[in-house]
Design a protein around this nucleic acid. Structure first.
Length: 505
RNA sequence: GCCCCGAUAGCUCAAUUGGCAGAGCAGCUGACUCUUAAUCAGCGGGUUGUAGGUUCAAGUCCUACUCGGGGCACCA
């Protein structure tokens, strides 16, 4: 769009040869003058570069041209001219291959086109596959079809793309010139496919539930707000998948899951994007420990989908995903790291003061004990987990959707799976008692922000529970963070192809 | 929303204490039928993110803003 606009002001015969876009537009006109379409047409018969490179190469021999004929299409990413002989590198998403074009092997028009090629142009070629005297796998081109002009200069790939903003705003170039970016995109798909295969194999039904919801429930987060015109209806984008899926448990779908985008109107960071992908599943008649077993197998299936072993690199460290993962009670972890019992309120307050964790909310009200415990845990305990480790038996006050332990009503049957301080999975025995659920929805702890309390009552969900939801285990996994971990990627921006950025200008 | 850091040619990066804004690649012209970060000869290319300010002089110092990065807060 902007390229065309800026180019129109440039002369087709550029007076300024440093106006790179104008030079390219001029070449486009020359291609048109040769009677060719600079935007190309259907091109049949191409195989992938990878498939070509797997063929047996044969040293080129003009007197005995018996090499295999191949056909590929892709982008020109390097071009070495040599008078009557050109070498080019053609890129497609499976790899690169060298092209050799000799003046006497192509038509005069094709030779003219060759001399008009810019880096970034797309061509289709046919020719003999073999290797040069120096051993480079090469296609000796005898048919050259121009397929698409690139009017913008491409980055010089040999030095890589250095500027993060440039990479994010030109993700299409990042995919071409940063192999790791394309590799991560492929691995993300493999992880999702492994997850679906695993869950389908265990009898889980994949469903789709509404993104637009009247009450955004199932998590503590600020929603995006929107509006439906015809019904004049205030709507929010979902912040979790939980509540619709549990309605399906009521409806008798005993094993159910959804992989979908959720939206939280919160900050952006290396681990947060306002829209991200969750997998949530629910299993009637299961519980917390059903979910632990399932999580181990599921994570291992995902690990093995992208990695040969169960040990994967993470920065300068590694993680080994060999079941059973470590299990650690929340209270034990708290005591081990902080040296105080979480039920000992004076000791917890003293520890908070020592660690400079405020005992008061931003508005000055004293934090409830459970909130202070949670803050201490988040700030000082979570980071100590190398993992994978299941931390389980959470303080019930912080888990409004979770069933309490029968003998310990202050403890919720919940676990989180941590790896290198990152929360990878969250699961619990689902609260299916509508009377307790109605009470926890309205409970807002002192010192807890309103938007963090899930204090908005979803009366329709309560009604569903009142019709009887079977006891169940539920699990949520953040797909983006799982992908980060399994692809050794420190920022969520690089496992999401188009992370949210402010518009330029 | 707050704090810190960054932005220089299409790309990747230099520029000493405030003292003529540079290089490689890419581009243009020419040479070259086995190159591969090709090579060789030559030529162009900049509102130093934007707007102000200080100064004889600003890429450099100051202020505001824009965008990005890191952190905080929030969260998964």
């Amino acid at each position: 769009m902007s390229a065309a606009v800026s180019s129109e002001s440039s002369s087709p015969s550029p007076e300024n040869p440093t106006d790179l876009a104008a030079v390219r537009l001029d070449k486009l006109r020359q291609i048109e003058a040769l009677g060719l379409d600079p935007w190309g047409q259907r091109f049949d018969g191409a195989t992938t570069v990878r498939a070509v490179r797997e063929l047996e190469p044969r040293l080129f021999d003009d007197k005995d041209p018996k090499g295999q004929r191949v056909c590929v299409a892709g982008r020109i990413v390097r071009h070495r001219t040599g008078g009557k002989l050109h070498f080019l590198e053609l890129w497609d998403q499976t790899g690169r291959v060298q092209l050799m074009v000799r003046v006497n092997k192509v038509t005069p028009v094709e030779w003219q086109v060759l001399n008009l090629l810019d880096l970034g142009d797309i061509v289709g070629v046919r020719g003999e596959f073999g290797k040069t005297r120096t051993g480079e796998l090469t296609i000796q081109v005898d048919e050259l079809t121009f397929l698409t002009k690139s009017l913008e200069p491409h980055p010089k790939d040999v030095f890589g793309l250095g500027d993060i903003e440039y990479r994010l705003r030109h993700r299409y170039l990042d995919l071409i010139y940063t192999p790791a970016t394309l590799d991560r995109a492929h691995k993300r798909v493999r992880i999702l496919r492994a997850m679906r295969t695993f869950l389908d194999g265990r009898g889980y039904l994949e469903v789709e539930t509404p993104v637009l919801q009247g009450v955004a429930g199932g998590a503590a987060a600020r929603p995006f707000v929107t509006h439906h015109n015809a019904l004049d209806l205030a709507l929010t984008l979902r912040i979790a998948l939980e509540l619709p899926l549990k309605r399906l448990l009521v409806g008798g779908i005993e094993k159910v899951y959804e992989i979908g985008r959720v939206f939280r109107n919160e900050g952006v960071s290396p681990r947060h994007n306002p829209e991200f992908t969750m997998m949530e599943l629910y299993h009637a008649y299961g519980d917390l420990f059903t979910m632990m077993e399932l999580t181990e197998s599921l994570i291992v299936a995902c690990v093995e989908a992208v990695n040969d072993s169960q040990t994967i690199p993470w920065g300068d460290q590694t993680v080994t995903f060999t079941p059973p993962f470590q299990r650690l009670k929340y209270a034990d972890a708290f005591r081990r790291v902080l040296g105080v019992d979480l039920d000992d309120e004076p000791a917890v307050r003293a520890k908070a003061a020592e660690l400079k964790v405020s005992a008061h909310a931003k508005d000055g009200t004293p934090k409830a004990h459970a909130v202070l415990v949670n803050d201490l845990f988040s700030d000082h305990v979570e980071d100590s987990f190398v993992g994978p480790v299941f931390v389980y038996d959470y303080p019930a006050a912080l888990c409004p959707l979770t069933k309490r332990k029968p003998a310990e009503p202050l403890v919720a049957e919940r676990f989180e799976l941590y790896v290198h301080g990152m929360e990878l999975a969250n699961a619990y025995t689902e609260l299916n008692d509508p009377i307790t659920q109605a009470a926890t929805f309205t409970a807002q702890l002192a010192g807890q922000a309103a938007e963090d309390s899930m204090a908005t009552m979803d009366t329709d969900f309560i009604r569903a529970l009142r019709h009887g939801m079977p006891p169940a285990g539920g699990l949520g996994i953040g797909i983006d963070r799982l992908t980060m971990l399994l692809t050794n990627t420190p920022t969520i921006r690089d496992v999401i192809l188009f992370p949210l950025l402010r518009p330029e200008k």
